[in-house]
Amino acid sequence: MHISTNPWVWIAAILTLAIYSFLYKDNPFYKFAEHLFMGLSIGYGAVVLWYNSIIPRLWNPLAHGTSPSRFYLLIPIAIGLLSFGIFSKKYSWLIKYPLAFSVGAYAGFSIPVTFEASIFEQISGTILTKQMMATPWLAISNLIMFVGVITTITYFYFSKHHKGLLGKSARTGIVFLMLAFGASFGYTVMARISLLIGRMQFLLHDWLGIIK
C-alpha cells in the first residue's frame, strides 16, 4: 500500500466520496461538494469565456487589429448590448432583437442540414437495393429493417385515428420502438460501468495505492 502524499489527490478523493455519499442519502458532504462544483463550474466557464471568446474575438481585433473590417464587430456588440434592456422595466422589450436575430439564424441554418442528415440519409439508407438482398438472410434482415422504419414512422402519424391498417402499423411500430429502446439500454450498461471502474481505479490506485 502506498497512500498518496499529494494533498491534491486527497482533495480529489474526498470530493469523490462526498458525491458518492448522495447514494445513501442527501447530506452536508454532498451539499458541500455539489455547491463547490457549481461554483467552480461558473468560475471555470468565465475564465474559458474570457480567454477563448472575449480576448480572441472581441478584444484582440478591436484593440490590436488593423483591418478596417474590425469595426463590423460593433454591430453584434450593439445587438448584444440590447439584451441589457432586461435590467429596466421600460426597455425590457429590447431583448427581443438579439433573440430574434439568434433564433432566426439558427432556424434557417438548421433547415437544409436537417433535411440532409435526418431525412435524406435515413431514407436512402432505408430504400432496399439489390446489394441488400444479396443473400436470403440479408434479404430477410433488411426487409425487417424496412418494415421497422415504415411502421415506426406511422406511429408518429398525428392527424388520423390509429385504427384499421394505420392502427396495426402503429402498433408494430411500438414493437420496434421497444426493441430499440431495450437494445440501447442494454448496450449502454457497459459504458456506464466503465465510468465507475475509472473512479474505483482512481481511489484504489492513485489515492490508496492498493492496486498497481
Binding site: E116, A117, F120, E121, I123, S124, T126, I127, L128, T129, K130, M133, F146, V149, I150
Partner: peptide, 22 residues
C-alpha cells in the same frame, strides 16, 4: 418514395435513390 424507390432500385432503376443523395 421509400416504397417506390425500393421497387425501382430492385429493378435496377436508381432514380429515387439518387433523389436522396447528399
Amino acid at each position: 418514395l421509400a416504397f417506390i424507390g425500393s421497387i425501382l432500385s430492385l429493378l435496377n432503376i436508381d432514380v429515387v435513390l439518387k433523389m436522396f443523395a447528399t
